[in-house]
């Protein structure tokens, strides 16, 4: 009898425990759902906001959509007053212009104008920026590593960096001509001091101990820059190029505006003579797109080639 009683009690207890556990589980699920519904983690406002994937996408698109809406309404308003208005042309006018400049061969030369302009500009900015990257790297490394060289040129480079290149444009054009060289030199002079200083600062940040250690381990005077410092500077150099590209575009457009036969800046300033915003706006969008893609590919280059750097 007693054993039966204890067993029944035992079974009841077990049953109770199971039911309790079950209830607890349900309660936890409800709590969890409630929490999710209440969303203790804010999605947008405040420092703890963690927008989800979809919200992220919407948020990223929103300013663009707003810009387009503002443009379309302003353009619609102006076109309603004057159908020939050139300042804010309609989308269809811009499409026509793009069609004419990008996809129809030119009557005079038989080539595609926009393609020609793009290639001409890209080669100028490409050569210019590579030139200043190489120069900036070499001079920056030397300033950073060798004290003697630092005394010789750091003040000078800092001085040069402050000169606004556009102010001395006539001198540049007279010294280097108005051809390709003049344009490349403007981009070069405009961007290399900053790259140089950036490289120098990166070198300066490398701990002294690292150099002492490698010297102790038997590194030679030339091995230190090549094996220890150069690899650490390289990703920073690419970052520096990324930042300089913005300035490089400004100088490119400026040089093409002053004396040129082709190029993106040339076209913009040429058609500006009759306020052809239907050509200018697509060109500006195109320049922005190119700049954005170049920037993006440099980011991915750094991420792929220098994983240790981007993890920081």
């Amino acid at each position: 009898m007693r054993t039966i009683l204890t067993e029944t009690v035992h079974t009841f207890r077990k049953l109770f425990a199971i039911i309790c556990g079950f209830l607890k589980k349900i309660w936890r699920i409800i709590k969890h759902t409630l929490r999710r519904l209440k969303s203790r983690v804010p999605r947008f406002w405040g420092i703890h906001a963690r927008p989800g994937f979809r919200l992220n996408l919407i948020l990223a698109i929103l300013p663009f959509a707003l810009l387009i809406i503002v443009y379309l309404s302003a353009s619609g308003y102006r076109l309603a007053q004057n159908p020939d208005d050139k300042l804010l042309p309609s989308i269809s006018k811009m499409v026509n212009a793009v069609n004419k400049y990008a996809f129809t061969p030119d009557d005079k030369t038989g080539t595609y104008i926009m393609l020609d302009d793009t290639l001409a500009s890209l080669s100028r900015i490409g050569i210019g920026i590579i030139l200043s990257a190489v120069t900036g790297l070499v001079i920056g490394l030397n300033i950073g590593i060798y004290r003697g060289f630092r005394s010789l040129s750091l003040t000078f480079v800092n001085f040069i960096a402050i000169i606004p290149p556009l102010a001395i444009l006539p001198i540049l054009f007279i010294s280097f001509g108005t051809g390709e060289l003049g344009k490349i030199m403007l981009i070069f002079i405009g961007t290399f001091p900053m790259i140089t200083r950036d490289v120098y600062l990166t070198v300066k940040k490398i701990p002294e101990e690292m150099i002492t250690k490698s010297l102790t381990l038997g590194a030679s005077q030339l091995e230190i820059p090549w094996r220890i410092i150069f690899p650490q500077v390289l990703p920073k150099l690419i970052d520096s190029i990324r930042l300089s590209l913005g300035a490089a575009w400004v100088y490119l457009i400026a040089s093409e505006a002053i004396a040129s036969q082709n190029g993106l800046g040339y076209r913009i300033f040429l058609v500006r003579r009759y306020l052809a915003m239907d050509v200018i706006i697509p060109y500006v969008v195109w320049i922005t797109l190119i700049g954005f893609l170049v920037d993006l590919s440099l980011i991915y280059l750094v991420r792929g080639a220098f994983r240790w750097y981007s993890r920081e």
Binding site: P170, I174, I258, A259
Partner: peptide
Amino acid sequence: TLVNTSDADIGTL
């Protein structure tokens, strides 16, 4: 061959 040149600089050039 035509080279588009800014009027601000054409004389000096």
